[in-house]
Design a protein around this nucleic acid. Structure first.
Lengths: 335, 335
DNA sequence: TGGACGGTAGTGATCGGTCACATGGGCGTC
DNA sequence: GACGCCCATGTGACCGATCACTACCGTCCA
């Protein structure tokens, strides 16, 4: 553990070999846990490595062989909060498998992105690349050494798609509310430019008739609290006892509108949100919401990549990504 | 732009050279925009590169020279929201300077972190490393090729310190409230394990006497809405007309407590938060809060790193990182 | 006419590992 | 005792770029 002469070039495998009195190749074998190496030699090399504070040069290692122990994780720039949890999951999964994960944020025009991906894939730095955004066709073609796995969770405009846009919990919310006696619903939708907003709307529109419920319709709220508040103010009396809001911000706006009209929540009207905003658990009432398992998405993307690296079939993971959390903003329908 | 024979090794600089009828070194010069190369040769090489779809191997390039065009950005694992904005700023700054930024998340015990940093620094992959967390002494010693810049925003336990913990806005909040006629304050502090919580408390304790105001004291709320609510419920009547909460969640808890007691906000009591939680702008009343310029922090970290790489002096940036946003939860003091 | 000089281009070494193959000693078998 | 085999280790080429030198050619000036 003693330090090497400071300011000096760092030691190479050959210097370690000389100090240990073996060949450089034997040191290389030691670094790869080759079982054929004798205990005595092993110990001498270990000592030499410690003494020189030697660490392998990853660049050189990556040059000859192909094992770099590194994966690239492409994250769209300009995304929101959630990506960080995705990132945490991905990092953990990579680490579990003995890999280091490099996160490369990617944005800008399609052509530029395509070039960057090419560069990454052919740079020889990475064994595999996982992307959370769709990549141009040209960037996906087979690269010799680098596996590329796309888990499309964001689109070109960095809006969530894929599983992040999975709207299954909408059905769960409606079913739960129906069990509580609700019959008349309204949906305060998000910005339709977002796939997730469209999916939630579609799921709403499909679930209502499936359960034989009534809908006052879908009101476009564009992820805006103000529009949601306005919508609540204009809602005909008795039109709905349950409001499915596009996300927590919309739900908070709806809450505000409901209060303005003197409606109690959930006694007079139930309201649901989406995203599990921290403040939503503190409001009066606390907001029933949907937690998206972002971390698991990240983990899954890496799992898929590792499978691809080993030519294994794509692993299946059927667990739902969204989980409903029932809180105070929902309750039995008014009688 | 035609594709190379698929499945085949990708082309090297020598193959390009052969096709162009020049030496490999001339191709290398072309890639580096060497001005001494003749227009005719330049054109021949360009054609050959296009034809083979050649891309330089970054690993090989990094091996001989030291220019890799890559910077590493060390991000603590398990952090909150804000890191993503920091990341966005850092990525943008790196990109502006022609660098690619690799984000490496780092967690686990100190010893392991130290090892990873060493590995990164000596791997030869990066020209510089910017870290948002303090690194063990051993990891900071001079590395031959790799500059390391620490912008300590998080401590060992991934709690924000440094500029993220800059509490100057606390003074601004108190001054603003004093101008509105408030004389009696109380502080609902965050978890003291966090430097940011301690700094806000210290700034509170320093500002109150400086302005000749009264303080009911500091109540430890541990970043918890429940504790804040409790604190409000136990607050003696008339003890304070202004509540400085540790963050938005604490402020929301305080709000809840105030409502329970029948106090109107801001007519009877003013409450401030911190963090600019999106829902805070939707609540009734909307919460006065502090926006931290996370993106600029990231940008600044990279700027400092680039300066270090060029042996330039550390750039100064005096702009404040926190900005107060006055909203409905604060108003004139009750008469 | 010759030599210095500047602009182009080429040659071979080199970075620090890993791979493929060679070597030599000990042991079991016929 | 000769042979074959396995085990532990050594030798030299090689990955794909860049670096430091060298070589060539034409021009200009003494």
């Amino acid at each position: 553990m003693s330090q090497s002469a400071s300011g000096t070039r760092r030691p190479t495998i050959r210097e370690v070999a000389r100090l240990a009195g073996v060949s450089h190749q034997t040191v290389s074998r030691f670094l790869h846990d080759d079982p054929r190496i004798s205990a005595q030699t092993r110990e001498r090399i270990r000592t030499a490595i410690d003494q020189l504070d030697y660490r392998p040069n990853l660049v050189a290692r990556a040059m000859r062989g192909r094992k770099t122990g590194r994966l690239a994780f492409i994250l769209p720039t300009g995304t929101t909060v959630s990506s960080l949890e995705i990132l945490a999951g991905a990092t953990a999964a990579a680490h579990d498998a003995g890999y280091i994960l490099d996160v490369v944020t990617l944005g800008g025009p399609v052509a530029e992105r395509s070039g960057r991906v090419h560069e990454l894939a052919e740079s020889g730095l990475f064994e595999g690349i996982a992307s959370l955004m769709p990549l141009p066709e040209s960037a996906q073609r087979q690269h010799e050494r680098t596996a590329i796995v796309i888990s499309p969770e964001y689109d070109d405009q960095m809006r969530s798609i894929g599983e992040l846009a999975d709207a299954a919990p909408v059905a769960e919310l409606i079913e739960g509310l129906a069990e509580l006696g609700h019959r008349r619903f309204v949906h305060l939708a998000g910005d339709y430019a977002h796939t997730s907003a469209r999916r939630r709307r579609d799921m709403y529109l499909a679930t209502i008739p499936r359960l034989g419920l009534e809908s006052h319709g879908v009101i476009d709220c564009d992820w805006s609290a103000e529009l949601a508040e306005q919508a609540m103010l204009e809602l005909p009396v008795g039109a709905a006892t349950a409001v499915i809001a596009g996300n927590d911000v919309v739900a908070a706006g709806a809450l505000r509108g409901a209060f303005t009209r003197g409606w109690r929540v959930p006694e007079d009207v139930s309201i649901t949100g989406w995203d599990n905003n921290k403040l939503g658990a503190v409001l009066s009432p606390t907001i029933t919401t949907v937690i998206m398992a972002h971390e698991r998405l990240g983990r899954r993307a890496i799992t898929r990549l590792l499978a691809a690296l080993n030519d294994a079939p794509d692993p299946v993971d059927d667990e739902p990504v969204g989980t409903v959390v029932w809180r105070e903003s929902t309750g039995p329908a008014p009688s």
